[in-house]
Amino acid sequence: MTDTCPACCRRRIPPCAERRRGNQIAHGYRCPGCGHQWATARQLPAYSDIHRRRAGRQTREAA
């Protein structure tokens, strides 16, 4: 899921870090334009089926 930089409004920035806990997913972002860093936390049930399927996949650490 991409996001928009809250500092310079650059769009479609992909996450550089991801962490899952239960039905919540947190993404860390860093804007390639201005260097601003931020994080978002989302509840997966509030989003589409696609995100719920992703949450069920094994991570590298679990594999």
Score class of each variant (00 low, 15 high):
Pro14Gln: 07
Ser48Gly: 11
Arg12Ile: 03
His51Leu: 15
His51Thr: 13
Ser48Pro: 00
Gly28Ser: 01
Cys9Tyr: 14
Ser48Gln: 06
Asp49Ser: 08
Ala46Thr: 04
Leu44Lys: 00
Arg11Lys: 15
Ala17His: 11
Ile13Tyr: 05
His27Gly: 04
Pro6Trp: 04
Thr4Met: 06
Gly35Trp: 01
Arg12Ala: 15
Ile25Lys: 12
Cys34Lys: 02
Gln37Ile: 00
Pro6Asp: 06
Gln58Gly: 13
Arg60Pro: 06
His36Ser: 10
His27Val: 06
Ala26Lys: 08
Thr4Tyr: 05
Ile13Ser: 08
Gly35Glu: 05
Pro14Val: 10
Arg54Pro: 07
Arg20Gly: 08
Glu18Leu: 12
Pro32Asp: 00
Thr59Ile: 08
Gly33Met: 07
Asn23Phe: 12
Tyr29Met: 04
Pro15Met: 02
Glu18Ile: 10
Cys5Glu: 11
Ile13Lys: 07
Gln24Ile: 03
Gly33Asp: 04
Ser48Leu: 14
Cys31Ser: 06
Tyr29Ile: 04
Ala39Trp: 07
Ala17Pro: 00
Arg54Trp: 15
Gly35His: 00
Cys9Glu: 15
Gln43Tyr: 11
Arg60Cys: 14
Ala63Cys: 12
Arg52Ser: 14
Pro6Val: 02
Cys31Pro: 02
His36Asp: 08
Ala46Arg: 09
Pro45Asn: 01
Arg10Tyr: 06
Gly28Ala: 09
His51Ala: 14
Ala26Ser: 11
Arg57Cys: 12
Arg20Asp: 02
Ala26Cys: 09
Arg11Leu: 04
Ala39Glu: 04
Arg54Cys: 13
Cys34Pro: 01
Gly35Pro: 03
Gln43Thr: 14
Thr40Gly: 03
His36Leu: 03
Arg30Met: 04
Arg53Leu: 12
Gly28Asn: 01
Ala7Asp: 13
Arg21Phe: 12
Arg10Leu: 03
Gly56Ile: 08
Glu61Gly: 10
Cys5Gln: 00
Gly35Tyr: 02
Cys34Phe: 00
Asp3Ala: 13
Thr59Lys: 08
